[in-house]
Amino acid sequence: MGTPTSLGYVLQLGSEILPQYKQETPKTPPHIILHYCAFKTTWDWVILILTFYTAIMVPYNVSFKTKQNNVAWLVVDSVVDVIFLVDIVLNFHTTFVGPAGEVISDPKLIRMNYLKTWFVIDLLSCLPYDVINAFENVDEGISSLFSSLKVVRLLRLGRVARKLDHYIEYGAAVLVLLVCVFGLAAHWLACIWYSIGDYEVIDEETNVARKDSWLYMLGETAGTPYRFNATGTGRWEGGPSKDSVYITSLYFTMTSLTSIGFGNIAPTTDGEKIFAVAMMMIGSAGICEKYFINTVDKL
C-alpha cells in the first residue's frame, strides 16, 4: 500500500484504505479486486473526473434545455454512461473495509454492501437519458422528465466527498478543492438564475415580454433583441445567445457570492429578487464563517 508520504497513498481516493498495520495482501478470489490496488485507484480517478464533468454538464443541459442532437456530444455522453455502467459491475467485485478494519473479500458480503449503499444512485446515474432525448419524436413532456431525472447524477458527488475526505490534511489540496467547490456552486446558481429569467421574461398569459427583465435588457444590449412572430411562428423569438447568457449569469452569481455586486446586472422580478437574496445570504455565510474561524484561532 505504501507509507502515508508515498505517491500511491496520496493518490488513494478512499478514506477506507487498508490500515497501515496490515501490510500483508489479503487472499481474495480471482474475480475480486482489491479496493486499494493500482488499477482501482486509476479507475477511481477516472470516475472522479467524469463525475465532475457530469456535475457541470447536467445542470447546464437541464437549465438551457439543450437537446443532444450533436453527434459528438451524444457519443461523449454515451461513453460516460457506459463507463458508469462498468463502474457498477466493478463495485460488485471490489473489496471494502469492514467495521473492525478488516478487508472484506467475500463476494456475497460485497454484493450486499453495495446494494445497501450506492447501487440505486449509481444505476440511476448511468441510464442513457441523452440518447432518449435525442430522438425527434419524443414527447416534450417526457423529454423534460428525462432531462430532470439527469439531476439524480449529481448525487454521485456524495461519493466524491467521501473519497476526497483524507485530502483535508494537505493544505494545497484543500485550497484547490475549495476553489473547485466555489466554482461548481457558482455554475449551478448561474444555471438556476438563467432558468428563472427564461421563465419570467415572457408572460405566458398575456404573451408580452417583460422589458425590465435582465434577459430582455441583455438581448437589447447585445443586439439580439426579443421579437414576436419574426418568422411567422406565432411565438417570441430571438434573444441573446446561450454563450452570452451563461457568461452573464456566471458573472452575476460570482459577484453576488463574493459580495461585490457591481449592479450592472440587477434582479427585477420577485423571483429574481428572492434568488438574489438567497445568494447574498450564502455569500455572507461564507464570510461570517471565515471571520469566526479567524477569531477562534486568535483566541
Rank of each mutant, 00 (worst) to 15 (best):
P4N: 13
L7H: 05
G8C: 06
G14M: 02
S15L: 11
S15D: 14
E16A: 10
E16S: 10
I17S: 13
I17A: 09
I17L: 11
Y21S: 13
Q23C: 00
E24H: 10
E24K: 07
P26W: 14
K27H: 14
T28G: 02
Y36R: 11
Y36T: 10
A38I: 08
A38C: 09
A38D: 12
A38S: 11
F39K: 08
T42V: 14
W45R: 01
W45D: 09
L48Q: 08
L50N: 08
T54Y: 10
A55I: 07
A55M: 09
I56S: 10
I56G: 07
M57S: 11
P59L: 08
N61H: 14
V62N: 10
S63T: 03
S63Q: 02
F64L: 12
K67I: 05
Q68G: 07
V71Q: 07
V76G: 03
V76R: 05
D81F: 05
V82I: 13
I83Q: 02
I83Y: 00
V89N: 00
L90D: 01
L90V: 05
F92Y: 14
V97F: 04
V97C: 03
P99H: 11
P99K: 13
P99A: 12
G101V: 08
G101L: 07
I104P: 00
P107I: 01
K108Q: 14
L115V: 09
V120F: 02
I121W: 01
D122G: 02
L123E: 08
L123A: 14
L124V: 05
L124W: 03
L127K: 04
P128W: 06
P128K: 02
Y129H: 06
I132E: 03
G141Q: 14
F146E: 03
L149E: 06
L155V: 04
V160Q: 14
K163L: 06
Y167V: 03
Y167P: 01
E169M: 09
Y170V: 08
V176P: 01
L177E: 11
V181S: 09
A185N: 05
H187Y: 01
W188T: 01
L189T: 04
L189W: 13
A190S: 15
C191S: 12
I192A: 11
Y194I: 05
I202N: 13
I202T: 10
E204R: 13
E205W: 11
T206Y: 09
N207Q: 14
R210H: 13
K211F: 07
S213G: 12
S213A: 12
M217W: 12
L218D: 00
L218V: 04
L218K: 03
P225K: 03
F228A: 04
F228Q: 07
N229G: 07
N229C: 06
E237F: 04
P240K: 10
I247K: 12
S249M: 05
L250Y: 05
Y251T: 05
T255P: 05
T255H: 13
F262C: 10
G263D: 02
I265M: 06
T268K: 10
T268R: 06
E272C: 06
A276L: 01
A278K: 08
M279S: 01
M279G: 00
M281N: 09
S284E: 15
G286Y: 00
G286W: 00
K290A: 12
V296M: 12
V296C: 09
L299F: 13
